[in-house]
Simulated assay, not measured.
Amino acid sequence: MELRHLRYFIAVADEQSFSRAAERLHMAQPPLSHQIKDLEKELGVQLFDRKSHPIQLTPAGQAFLEESRATLAQLEQAVTKTQRIHQGELGYLTVGFTSSIANGVFPEMLRTFRQRYPEVKLILQEEHSASLIQRLRDRQTDIIFLYLYHEIYEAHDLETMSLTQEPLVAVLPKNHPLAAKSQISLADVKDEEFVMPLHQVVAGLSEQIYHLCSQAGFVPNVVQTAVFMVTILGLVAGETGISILPSHVLNIQREGVVYRPIQEPTATTHLTAVWRQNDSSTILQQFLEIIKSLSIYQPEISMISASELEVGCVS
């Protein structure tokens, strides 16, 4: 039995006439009658009462008609679904990210993609840097977002896109002597105690901070590490130490800390999208087009505290 047999049968049932069904199917009547007889022979039942005028379905034919319509409808749905998946209108995309990027441009990427492709499901996975790369290589994720670091530089099986070169800022306790300065040189903080992002979690950011300090001639004295940006801010507010973080940290309002620009022009970090080479997924390509098109906003760093921003005391 082939799908064409079902279409022939439905046409005859609808038209209640072999001749009209043949016209509808753009074929001669004798071959159509022959195909229906072959179908009845294969099923072992009579589908039509040919003695009635117009011809009528037998009870078995009526049951088979319902199932035939359902089968063709399901096939059409499958074809439509397959085509929409191929066109990137339907399906899912698994996105991996580190917690440190959630306060920057990442939310805008997600919002824009959801608006344009509402029937594509985004599966979000928050992991540390090394785990993100391994999951990408294991095909457990389709694209990841992290700060660029040495393993990405050296990878030959991955593609990258730099999304933003974001300035780093010094994060100081509100009453710290350096808070009186409009901007900070790295040399100013060489003797300070540091609260640092945990390397295993945000390797790229941690590597960049160590590299900058090395260029300034010192190794940071790290007294505490933390996983989340908000934790680092809390520890700085508690005068545990100072920190250096991406400027999007200004989006987190935390009383007791101030942010200062860093004088050195190399004090930046690169937020990067990473995916497998030769990944032909249409959904992935559409996601990449969206993140390419987004304008990346870099917060202005000024001499104001997070608490002042929160209560609107600064004009």
Rank of each mutant, 00 (worst) to 15 (best):
S68W: 11
A78D: 11
E40H: 13
Q46L: 05
S68R: 08
L72N: 08
V79P: 04
F48K: 02
R69T: 07
A63M: 15
Q77F: 10
K51C: 01
E76A: 12
K41E: 15
A70K: 15
L65R: 14
L57Q: 03
G61I: 01
L39T: 11
Q77T: 11
A70F: 13
H53V: 04
T71N: 06
L75R: 13
F64V: 07
Q77Y: 10
E42H: 15
T80S: 14
V79E: 12
K51Q: 03
G61E: 07
L72R: 07
E76D: 15
S52P: 00
A63Y: 13
H53N: 04
E66R: 10
E40C: 11
F64W: 15
K51G: 02
F48G: 04
I55G: 02
Q74W: 04
R50C: 01
F64C: 07
L65M: 10
R50L: 02
G61F: 04
L39Q: 14
G44I: 08
L39K: 14
L57V: 00
K41I: 12
A73P: 04
T71K: 08
G61L: 02
K81L: 06
L57F: 02
D49C: 00
A60D: 12
R69Y: 13
Q62P: 04
K51D: 04
L43E: 14
E42M: 12
L72K: 05
A78W: 05
K51N: 03
V45P: 05
H53C: 01
H53F: 04
R50T: 02
R69P: 05
G44F: 09
D49Y: 00
G44S: 09
P54S: 00
Q74K: 10
A70H: 14
Q56P: 00
I55K: 03
E67T: 13
G61Q: 06
P59S: 03
Q56K: 00
Q46H: 07
Q62I: 09
A70T: 13
R50Y: 01
